[in-house]
């Protein structure tokens, strides 16, 4: 993975009301034909679009290509966008569709067979393995590249179907129904997979303490539960 772009470009994080108003203005302008404003409209979401594609494809080149294709498709269909849904959700759903289509084209019969087996295994429950007091990882730790790397590795180690649901819900911030719609699965499946993904990540990160992943993190006073 290349050096990340750490700039927080989403204006909604700074002034939500102004950002939403500006976004609505941009949508209206592009719909009227001011095509040159489209990049300004989608720029706050370009990282999320890439992340959605990468969660499904697990390949940087494919993810970037699909992210670009999704943006072009959004541009081509911008006049069809209605404000009943959030623009970001619409954009992410287009991206997920593009990524799923790409994956379908490239999948092999063998992989389909494996996925079918895994679907049956989903019905069995998941029990947390790590019961030691949870040592909270503070958000400030994300400033450190090695921490982000370990979190990314833990996410990448999840089975595809758990990873996709987790990324859509907890990283892309789609709601449960939107996640189900985007991935073409039931709400019940989203909830089941989300539970397992969260518990598995918790176990993986709890194990990380024992392996020294986070041992050099600077904690503020009162943040040590042990």
């Amino acid at each position: 993975m290349a050096e990340p772009n750490m700039t927080l470009q989403n204006p909604t994080l700074q002034n939500p009301e102004q950002a939403i108003t500006r976004e609505q203005e941009l949508i209206a302008s592009v719909q009227r034909g001011q095509n040159e404003l489209f990049y300004e409209l989608v720029r706050p979401y370009e990282r999320r679009v890439y992340a959605a594609a990468f969660a499904i494809l697990r390949n940087e080149t494919d993810a970037e290509d699909v992210a670009q294709e999704a943006m072009l498709k959004a541009f081509a269909n911008i006049r069809k966008f209605r404000s009943e849904s959030r623009f970001s959700t619409w954009l992410i759903q287009i991206t997920v569709n593009e990524a799923l289509m790409r994956r379908r084209r490239e999948r092999t019969v063998v992989m389909e067979g494996i996925d079918e087996r895994r679907n049956r295994e989903e019905e069995t429950g998941y029990a947390p393995r790590e019961f030691a007091d949870w040592r909270e990882i503070p958000s400030e730790a994300l400033e450190r590249k090695e921490v982000r790397q370990k979190l990314s590795e833990a996410l990448a180690s999840l089975d595809r179907k758990y990873r996709e649901v987790f990324v859509m819900r907890d990283m892309e911030h789609l709601n449960i129904q939107e996640t189900a719609d985007a991935l073409g699965i039931s709400v019940a499946s989203v909830k089941t997979r989300l539970l397992r993904a969260r518990l598995m990540l918790r176990d993986l990160l709890a194990g990380g303490w024992e392996q020294g992943w986070f041992s050099r993190l600077p904690f503020e006073k009162g943040n040590k539960p042990w």
């Binding site: 290349a2 989403n10 990282r47 790590e130 909270e136 994300l142 969260r198 918790r202």
Partner: peptide, 22 residues
């Protein structure tokens, strides 16, 4: 512990800094 850990996981991964692009 499971509750706190799960909540922490959600909080960490929902941070925009977790999304890295080439």
């Amino acid at each position: 512990s499971v509750l706190e850990g799960t909540r922490n996981v959600i909080q960490l991964y929902s941070d925009e800094r977790m999304i890295e692009v080439p």
